[in-house]
Design a binder for these strands. Structure first.
Length: 498
RNA sequence: GAGUCGCUAGCUCAUCCGGUAGAGCACUUGCCUUUUAAGCAAGGGGUACUGGGUUCGAGUCCCAGGCGACUCACCA
């Protein structure tokens, strides 16, 4: 790319800044220095230097670290700067008489944002800052663009989301969120592996979508000439594996739902779904409680997190309340025997759009979301849901009209969904047919009839508990993030114009 | 989807009632061998999101569009 030439003087703005940096890059090349070499021998990460300083200084150990230059302060024949690697930030000190005239001259072609490796020994400056005295350095990567302002960092949320790589360079708080995210996923994975679960993978491209109520993305396979759906859940595949005898399985499942984007929703998001043969939903309430207590214990000092100003405590046993009891507790009415008219009256008190109440079950669902959910700040299980809302859950063993289902709530957020899994193939077929009827009435989110899944159930699926946890939402709670975009590296955005 | 707010230098932000578009950081140049938010000094850098309109004159007022943020409504 040749942007220079006769009108070089007219190159301004970011192009001018890049041109200057390219000029320095060429300066390095003409001095025989490759600005993009292949490797560098790193002896220590910066946090190791900090923690083992005394021994290293005592032994005058020759050290090497690598990272990005975040600050430079030149003073003629000396230069101070800060180098940052994944573990921390360290001051370095370059002297002309230590590195030599030529190397010092070439060092002037290095600037903030470049990645370098340095070798030297530790000392403390007269202001007592731990510093690496540089004997020798290597340019590792020349950067052509300047970093954002060092004090305020990158503030513009749009830029932070679109150019996450820059956000991660300059905003430590952004890095922290993602370290927490992936540590949480590791802890969840280890918790399940420790209990004999097998981590599996199931299809993302599915000929029939199911396992949740949502509109899917559709794509097309050319060779087979069929439409395929990006999965909205992996539930029905994991339960096929239970039929196959795998007994305990889980998957970190990227799901895709073709719906709106807002603070709590991204078109692709991550669920963790797990299933265990010979257990039921009460076992899984215990497990979820223990899992989150374990995770909170590892991620926090005291098992407590602050989310939107509320302190959430994972140490104490969770509140467990039945769906209708929760409604009664908040609203003061028994919804079990309530007629449609009275329900509509209640719904109108909570500013619910009455047109959305297409069935008694839907009305209960909406009233619950509006009136009860926001009150469930401390970890709470709501259980024993109306059957009509749960086509994949098993009938309640003693209460007709209910299913053995629970949802964990934290910080006013629904963070998951679990049940004793319906494994009666005839009952499942009947439930699918109800869904199909709703579909034909125009409910695009109702389930499709999955004949292969029914065939699998006909071979026999052991009594099982199943659970889906919304990973993104849990990360939001553990990082006190207000938006799902803050816990996804690359949230979905409209394409940049131009 | 609705409402509110925002978009000015690479970044962070000013520009008061419509009157020549400014600062800090970054960058360039000079000086400087323990500095540190930024050593000291000087200098360069602008399609004010886009397109219309009003006006002698628009970053500023009006209209339309683009992108985003926040709040609300719905789905995890």
């Amino acid at each position: 790319m040749h942007t220079e030439g006769s009108d070089e003087l007219r190159v301004e703005g970011i192009e001018k800044i890049k041109a200057v940096r390219i000029e320095k890059l060429e300066g390095l090349r003409s001095a025989g220095i490759n600005p993009y070499p292949y490797r560098f021998e790193v002896s220590h990460k910066i946090d190791e230097l900090i923690t083992t300083e005394a021994a290293l200084t005592e032994a005058k150990t020759m050290l090497s670290i690598a990272g990005r230059i975040m600050a430079l302060r030149g003073h003629g024949a000396t230069t101070f700067g800060h180098l940052e690697d994944r573990t921390g930030r360290l001051q370095f000190y370059v002297r002309r008489d230590a590195v030599g005239d030529a190397a010092y001259r070439h060092f002037k072609l290095i600037e903030v944002g470049d990645i370098i490796g340095i070798r030297g020994t530790l000392f403390r400056t007269k202001t007592n800052e731990l510093t690496l005295r540089v004997d020798d350095y290597s340019v590792l990567t020349k950067a052509l663009r300047p970093l954002p302002e060092k004090w305020h960092g990158l503030q513009d949320k749009e830029l932070r989301y679109r150019q996450r790589y820059v956000d991660l360079i300059v905003n430590p708080s952004a890095r922290d969120v993602f370290y927490t995210r992936f540590r949480l996923m590791d802890l969840m994975r280890q918790f399940l592996l420790d209990r004999g679960y097998l981590e599996v993978e199931t299809p993302i491209l599915q000929p029939i979508y199911g396992g949740a109520s949502a509109r899917p993305f559709v794509t097309h396979h050319n060779a087979l000439d069929i439409d395929l759906y990006l999965r909205i859940a992996d539930e029905l595949y994991l339960k096929r594996l239970l039929v196959g005898g795998l007994e305990k399985v889980f998957e970190f499942c990227k799901d895709f739902r073709n719906e709106g984007i807002d603070r709590a929703h991204n078109p692709e998001f991550t669920m963790m779904e797990c299933y265990s043969a010979y257990e039921d939903y009460t076992d899984y309430m215990d497990m979820v409680e223990e899992m989150l207590r374990t995770i909170a214990g590892e991620l926090t000092e005291n098992g407590k997190v602050t989310f939107r100003g509320d302190e959430i405590d994972f140490n104490t046993p969770w509140t467990r309340i039945r769906f209708f009891d929760a409604l009664e507790q908040v609203i003061g009415l028994d919804f079990r025997q309530m007629g449609m008219e009275e329900m509509l009256d209640v719904a109108s008190r909570y500013q619910i759009d009455l047109d959305k109440i297409t069935s008694p079950a839907k009305g209960l669902d909406l009233i619950f979301s509006e009136a009860v959910e926001p009150t469930l700040v401390q970890p709470t299980f709501v259980y024993d849901y109306p059957k009509a809302l749960s086509p994949l859950a098993k009938d309640h063993r003693s209460e007709p009209g209910l299913v053995e289902r629970f949802e964990p709530f934290i910080g006013g957020f629904e963070v998951g969904n679990a049940f004793s899994e319906l494994n009666d193939p005839q009952e499942q077929r009947a439930r699918f047919e109800e869904q199909a009827a709703m579909r034909s009435l125009g409910d695009e989110e109702a389930h499709m009839i999955d004949e292969d899944y029914l065939r699998a159930l006909e071979y026999g699926m052991p009594p099982s508990a199943g659970l889906g946890l919304g990973v993104d939402r849990l990360v939001m709670i553990f990082t006190d993030s207000n938006s799902i975009r803050d816990v996804l590296f690359f949230p979905q955005m409209r394409p940049e114009s131009r």
